[in-house]
Nucleic acid binder design. Structure first.
Lengths: 223, 223
DNA sequence: CTTCGATAACCAGAATTTTCATGAAAAACG
DNA sequence: CGTTTTTCATGAAAATTCTGGTTATCGAAG
């Protein structure tokens, strides 16, 4: 998951970021609400961990502004404020969870897993290799925040390679899965599409991802 | 919501049941795991509140059996066991939340509201993206104070796009959801309506909100 | 290490598919 | 009925996919 941590206390923030990253998440850290909103505006976070006591805008204000802006990203509140009234307020403002500080890190991870379970109903919704991300539902391919504009064929082709990253995919298999049964052997469509795809990947700064195995097929290199 | 409370301590159970009912829920109470499973097997519950320390089967066992039985009803654990390891175990077994006893009743209600929010999307009476606001109840679409005059079809179409803003909506899905089952493949009604809708949005100064994904469908751009 | 046939990369349009845009017909509504 | 909304039909425009040819690269045999 790509997670934004909004926490003004530097040491704690770094600790959380590090812990998340050690557990396979991608985490960014900001120290104030307005900074956080800017980051989120650029989009593409799966979760926000929000402290309530922030300088300037309070966490609640951040949450409100977020929603007013039309962002639907899930927000989990982490706060030392533990009185029920505050918890209720936070949850009713649209937070998906409220974890009292000090919290156990494993519990945080477990609660994040719940969200994951919920958002990515079947785990094959997002394919990832290096910093290339393919979202099957929204039909987007994203590299470093910018989405590259693939055609249907290119998308299907990359999906096949991505699903079996590291493995050799024969041309026969590509023909079968990306083109329908009525595939004209003796055409060079596959090569041409590989070429187009590579060109678009190159333009996004991901060169050499697709490897050619002469006489056999193609393989997507894993890092 | 229809809620099943599995709690062996009679007094606490009655208290919870009563509190839920006073807040508009329908609550049933059982005192053991096996009883609870029987109830759930027959039933249409929206939520289970599960104590962990039960006579006979423990709460965890109940949870496991429940899932083994194919029931997907959300379970919220209420327990005096507050150590992180137990919490994590509970969450990883598939509980949607874990509330430590003693708990504040308002917090319980708020956490139930979260689940409600999630399952019944319909209570989302106002959809918003950027400065465009759709009020489902009054059937209005407003941009900067002025409401744009959409027809029913246009409204339904925009609603679908808005509900899943940022995601690709395929034409099949549009046909299914905005037109009924009897839609004629090979007609261009969808395109025409997208065109009309775009024209009205443009006229209100919101150009380029609906993105077309050639060969797939449409997508409402989030800021 | 060189040569040669096979294979793939690359490129420029042509062919095809999909979407846009529009006016007019049909249907629904009051 | 007259008005509004929805659908149909159509050609233009845009995007995608495919084709055919040339050049580059690979890999085995000499």
């Amino acid at each position: 998951m790509k997670i934004l941590v909004i926490e003004d206390e530097r040491k704690l923030g770094r600790f959380i970021k590090q812990g998340l990253e050690q557990n396979g998440h991608v985490a960014d850290l900001t120290h104030s609400g307005s900074e956080g909103l800017d980051q989120l505006a650029g989009g593409l976070y799966d979760l926000v961990l929000l402290d309530l006591m922030l300088p300037g805008q309070t966490g609640f204000e951040v949450l409100k502004n977020l929603r007013a802006f039309g962002l639907t990203v899930p927000v989990m509140i982490l706060s030392a404020l533990s009185d029920p009234a505050t918890v209720v307020q936070g949850l009713d403002l649209g937070a998906v969870d409220y974890l009292r500080k000090p919290f156990d890190f494993d519990e945080l991870l477990a609660r994040i897993r719940i969200l994951q379970r919920r958002t990515t109903t079947s785990d094959n919704v997002v394919l990832r290799v290096a910093d290339l991300e393919m979202r099957l539902i929204s039909h987007e391919v994203i590299k470093g925040g910018i989405s590259l504009n693939l055609t249907n064929r290119e998308f299907a082709l990359l999906e096949l390679l991505l699903r079996r990253a590291g493995q050799l995919i024969t041309k026969n298999e590509i023909a079968e899965k990306v083109w329908s049964a009525d595939y004209d052997m003796g055409s060079n469509v596959i090569e041409v599409h590989i070429y187009q795809l590579r060109k678009k990947l190159d333009a996004s700064g991901i060169a050499g991802l697709i490897e050619t195995q002469v006489g056999r097929g193609y393989r997507l290199k894993t890092p």
